[in-house]
């Protein structure tokens, strides 16, 4: 029914809204999601992001969620317009969002250093906590859906998986899915997002081993313990293994608590390192011992001569 190899629209294409009459100029493709393509576009001089869909209902369902989120959060609205455009004879539904600049988590960490993951992780949990308190579960947490901009600021994008608490998760990615790892149901609850968040950090910092594990593990052996095994044998994740254990098994009271616990664990991990930081490197100790030995032997030679 749906073809995955959608045609890309060329930069400069103008979308004219059938209902609201606004004109948008497409600049470039930002990404391809499960139900459509997202483009960077301009409206007059302002930048915005436009999601073009294949299916009216799917797209409208997403727009509905964004609208109710905007209504609830009372910040600057994220959803700016919902309309249809005619493109080579077909009516194509689209919606317009605020443009969020940034790069995916893994790319950001590779560029700016893994030491940023503590702060980014805390901000992510704080953002999730807001959504959870409003009765939503993000659902499709994954590397591509979390954009990081300057100084580790984060934004969630692609709300296709966002689900009202208590319902079946609308959209998920296999290796981030709690059900896939036999760690619980696909019913939307805050713990579903904690689980995916834990997998996100394993993916961000140890992609090779995670993908190897998913490739080689038999379905009946998929278990959160396997993921914890990766955490415990990774230098940056190991100090936080207590947090990961609770996240993978859904053992937090609230997302607020998950965020606080993350902050404390990150703090403790960097604190634990600091007393050992000024420690003398091995080679220096070696050189010192050698010079001492040399000194003593020289003294001995001088004494006995």
């Amino acid at each position: 029914m749906a073809t995955s190899s959608e045609k890309q629209l060329s930069p400069g294409t103008i979308l004219t809204g059938k209902w609201n009459g606004r004109k948008y100029k497409l600049e470039r493709l930002l990404g391809v999601g499960a139900n459509g393509q997202v483009y960077l576009a301009t409206y007059g001089r302002a930048a915005c992001a436009i999601k073009l869909g294949k299916d009216v209902s799917d797209l409208q369902a997403e727009a509905n969620i964004l609208a109710s989120l905007d209504h609830r959060e009372k910040k600057q609205p994220f959803l700016l317009d919902v309309d249809d455009a005619m493109l080579s004879g077909n009516q194509v539904p689209f919606y317009v969002m605020q443009y969020v600049p940034g790069t995916a988590v893994r790319t950001y960490l590779r560029k700016h250093g893994t030491e940023w993951f503590g702060v980014i992780g805390y901000r992510l949990l704080r953002r999730l906590s807001e959504l959870h308190e409003a009765g939503w579960v993000f659902g499709d947490i994954k590397n591509d859906n979390i954009l990081v901009s300057d100084y580790g600021r984060i934004a969630l994008v692609d709300y296709g998986g966002m689900t009202a608490s208590g319902r079946g998760i609308r959209q998920f990615t296999e290796i981030y899915d709690r059900g896939y790892w036999s760690a619980g149901s696909r019913t939307a609850d805050p713990a579903y997002d904690w689980f995916s968040t834990a997998v996100l950090w394993i993916h961000a910092l140890d992609e090779k081993r995670l993908l190897y594990l998913t490739r080689t593990l038999l379905p009946q052996n998929r278990d959160p313990g396997e993921l914890l095994g990766l955490v415990k044998s990774h230098p940056s994740l190991k100090p936080l293994s207590g947090w990961f254990e609770r996240a993978l098994h859904g053992r937090f009271e609230s997302t607020q608590e998950a965020a606080e616990s993350w902050r404390e664990a990150v703090h403790a991990a960097s604190g634990a390192k600091s007393p050992s930081a000024p420690r003398v490197p091995g080679w220096m100790a070696g050189v010192f011992a050698l010079s001492l030995l040399l000194c003593i032997s020289l003294m001995a030679i001088w004494l006995f001569s």
């Binding site: 209902w19 609201n20 009216v56 209902s57 409208q60 369902a61 727009a63 509905n64 919902v82 539904p93």
Partner: peptide, 18 residues
């Protein structure tokens, strides 16, 4: 069809469909 409805009306119908 749903496509023929203006977006605000569509929003409502899609909510019911969901």
């Amino acid at each position: 069809s749903v496509e023929a409805l203006p977006p605000p009306k569509r929003a409502e119908v899609v909510r019911v469909m969901e």
